[in-house]
């Protein structure tokens, strides 16, 4: 990927928005119902992001609140700063921020779940095993233990597939801060993943 900062991993999925989004948004100032196109294009994705972080019950409310705030604040959207998709993920992250305690509580509960070794899993790469297990054990514990800011950056990159520049725009933080937060979060995640080896789990503490 040309132009990608060396510290950033290439996107896992397409993070780009649609080029006509900003035109749609602009015309929605005069024609509010045009905002329905933005809603149609991104509601499911924002809902999915919220569902992964907070579970399906809260997701409905978070996604609805995100689009309500976006719709009301659409006059302040700045197309030169961020794609519409990025802007929406920023709003969603702020809304999710009001449910931080629930998120951390949920992650801690998952951290207590046993990581069961998949049959024949000993030969697999650690990350393969973890993906098969879902969000539990040490990985969930490590994400729960991250600072709120570090967790937001990690999950915007990993779940929303935003690059550094987009995360900076979404959260309104300096570009350099994104890198340092992401590095810190990834270091902790890697340490936790290294510890998911079930043999080692028996010896290590489960904190």
């Amino acid at each position: 990927m040309t132009g990608e900062p060396l510290t950033a991993d290439p996107p896992l999925r397409g993070a780009q928005g649609r080029v006509d989004d900003s035109a749609v948004l602009r015309s929605s100032l005069d024609e509010p119902e045009r905002f329905g196109e933005i809603f149609d294009a991104y509601f499911a994705e924002i809902h999915g992001y919220a569902a992964r972080r907070l579970g399906p019950d809260a997701a409905s409310d978070v996604a609805a609140q995100t689009f309500l705030e976006a719709f009301r604040g659409r006059a302040r959207y700045d197309a030169s700063r961020a794609a519409v998709r990025t802007w929406l993920f920023g709003i969603a992250t702020n809304v999710i921020g009001k449910h931080r305690r629930a998120e951390v509580r949920g992650l801690r509960a998952r951290a207590r779940l046993e990581v069961v070794e998949r049959a024949g899993g000993h030969a697999d790469r650690v990350d393969d095993r973890v993906s098969a297990q879902g969000l539990r054990g040490r990985l969930a514990g490590a994400i729960a233990a991250l600072s709120d800011g570090d967790r937001d950056v990690l999950l915007l990159v990993a779940l929303a597939d935003l690059n550094h520049q987009e995360v900076a725009a979404a959260l309104d933080i300096p570009y350099g801060t994104v890198g340092s937060r992401l590095n810190r979060a990834r270091r902790k995640v890697r340490a936790a993943l290294g510890g998911t080896n079930p043999m080692r789990d028996l010896e290590d503490d489960h904190g």
Partner: peptide, 18 residues
């Protein structure tokens, strides 16, 4: 090890909104 992908996959695919 692609830890970001691991995080993504661990979080799984949520059900689509109704």
């Amino acid at each position: 090890m692609d830890d970001l992908r691991t995080v993504m996959e661990a979080y799984g695919e949520p059900a689509a909104p109704t």
